[in-house]
Amino acid sequence: MSQAIAASAKRPTAFGDALFAGLVKAAGIFVLLLLGGIIVVLFIGGLPAFRQFGFSFLTSADWDPVQEVYGAAVPIFGTLVTAVLALAMAVPLAFGIAFYLTELAPLWFRRPVGTAIELLAAVPSIIYGMWGFFVIVPIMAEYVQPFIIDNLGELPLIGDFFQGPPFGTGIFTAAMILSVMIIPFIAATMRDVFSTVPAVFKESAYGLGCTTWEVMRSVVIPYTRVSVVGGIMLGLGRALGETMAVTFVIGNTNRIATTIFGPGNTIASIVALEFPESQSGSLKLSSLLALGFILFVISFIVLAISRMLLKPGAKS
């Protein structure tokens, strides 16, 4: 009889365990399906456009709603150029911030400054857009762009990239705003991996008479370089898909700009702007979903690389 009691007491327990395990596993599978669903839905939505234009969808620079001809070349170009330019500006600054926070700042100062930098990441994208449009664009038009055009515009070979009318908006301004937005992500990753360097490594280098910078350059960076690249890729992934901030300042023109001050667009900005004007079931909407699919593929690759590099155990 005591066995019967034990058995009956055991059964609901086993059942509860199986139920709970099944529930959480189902939730995990749901997340897998969610990502799969996003890929499939965007692809199916973009299928009419892919079918209509074929491979030339990727290479055509047309975006003509009147004649129903759409191509993705300009937004893809704009997305890659703004993201890479943003990275070029953000990485040195983020490195400086991470270096300061891990090695230079007084201990009591690290937490408030670190929090303030992290708060930059919490400011909503649309606020960056307004700030960029009402504060940064006038500064760019008034001071920064004329200065760069005067000083770099005459250089041989590269001078052409720094010419054009100083409107304030354009690819360069968009990249600048993007860089401010991704600095906190890159800086936080760098700070976290810099602090994983064993103190004894750094102390040995200091013991040999190295300066702080030499310790950073010859010990900390070689030790953490894989994760640092992972953090940079994370920033790149963020920059590729930013929508609202870019939409405000990039100028929104479907033309491949020949200078970095020229207007342009990105996949995200063209989708946000053109979407309200496209009817359900139209070729235009399908083209926008196809653009979304392309953006997803690009950011998926970048984020996958980032994650592989940042995975614990990848440091070597």
């Binding site: 997340v31 965007l42 963020r238 898909g241 995200a268 950011s299 984020l303």
Partner: peptide, 11 residues
């Protein structure tokens, strides 16, 4: 889940 965390919200 990590990819979703950083995926563009517009998508």
């Amino acid at each position: 889940s990590d990819v979703l965390l950083s995926a563009p919200s517009i998508l």
